[in-house]
Design a protein around this nucleic acid. Structure first.
Lengths: 190, 190
DNA sequence: AATATAAGTGAATATTTATTCACTTAAACA
DNA sequence: TGTTTAAGTGAATAAATATTCACTTATATT
């Protein structure tokens, strides 16, 4: 018997991300995914139950990926600013290098494909960052306000900077990356 | 002859915004828009050429609205921090009060409905804010870095804060609003 | 009040898109 | 090398959705 070409799943994901980035969730069809992934439409149904399954599975892969990357090399006993800088940097780099995944996730959150309980479960995966912010408040490194706003502020500045950098094809130098962290830090610090 | 019920256009827009906020651009159908707007599907075609036209026209209405609100009461000769605060506040409030419009615009930017030249033209409408940031750098009120990043930072922090506030149904008090501006300002100031 | 004209309707039709399936191809194993 | 089995194909079919149109309704004009 012929074995499964497990690489096909990756091809489908890659194609889907590319298409969603270019035309949004509203713009993808099974035909276009199959074509982009260089296989027949029927083949999609060997590896995935249906269209929803492609999106649902890819969604979880992307969530998993980012949650993993965010906390890479994270040392909780490092000095506060350093610890926050590492996570900030991890998030920033991940968003830059996998911009298509960010776009896809954002679109999923406003789509009929991902249900409410799933969204809530996903938010929980990023709790460690929430805890780090709590610690910052306790150590009086950060402004004394609900962590909720501090976290939103931090994520917002990262997301938008990446989004605009990609759309306008702006190169961001290491120096400029540091300046961006400084804006974020100055905004959050006590 | 029977005159046009010009209110119908507003009903259609309202219905579309509501549906896109709830289920994303990928989730709307002419049937669902008609039902939500309480009219027959055929009626949609009296007021709009087709589905694309609904989205395209609504897109321009939303862009127009926000560009107008952003600079309401703006006095260019006011002290710098005050001027920036006003615009920051206008944007924040507009996003809060018309969150559905923000979601719709964001989705349009990643969809096959809005073409590239249109996107570029829209960005231009927000040039006055870009100019205010330039002024801030000249007056050495703001950090000395490409305005591009300062603007992205400012918009990002607003967008994400609003997004999360709405999703998590967080009430934001006037005091907390000021704290949020302070984060933004501390991040941007020299 | 009668007429004309365009709005409004929603079932019928056209179009697009998802999914299936009869068939072909390729690898594993005897 | 032949047989078996599942992958792979893409045209055919089903399902969902956009659009039209023959008809009804409302109102402005005479």
């Amino acid at each position: 018997m012929k074995p499964r070409d497990e690489n096909k799943i990756a091809q489908v994901y890659k194609a889907t991300l590319k298409l969603v980035k270019a035309r949004g969730l509203a713009g993808i069809t099974m035909q276009s995914v199959a074509k982009e992934a260089e296989m027949a439409t029927g083949t999609l149904y060997i590896y995935f139950k249906n269209k929803d399954a492609i999106i649902f599975n890819l969604f979880h892969v992307c969530v998993q990926n980012s949650a993993q990357v965010f906390f890479r090399n994270y040392n909780p006993s490092a000095p506060y600013k350093e610890a926050l800088h590492l996570i900030w940097y991890n998030i920033m780099r991940h968003r830059m290098e996998h911009f298509d995944e960010s776009v896809f996730l954002e679109q999923c959150f406003h789509s009929p494909f991902i249900d409410e309980p799933t969204k809530v479960r996903v938010k929980k995966m990023f709790d460690p960052l929430r805890e780090l912010i709590e610690r910052g408040k306790q150590e009086q490194e950060l402004k004394d306000m609900d962590s909720f706003w501090l976290l939103s502020f931090m994520m917002g500045s990262i997301n938008e900077v990446v989004k605009r950098a990609v759309y306008f094809n702006k190169k961001i130098s290491d120096e400029m990356l540091e300046m961006n962290f400084m804006m974020c830090w100055d905004g959050m610090k006590a």
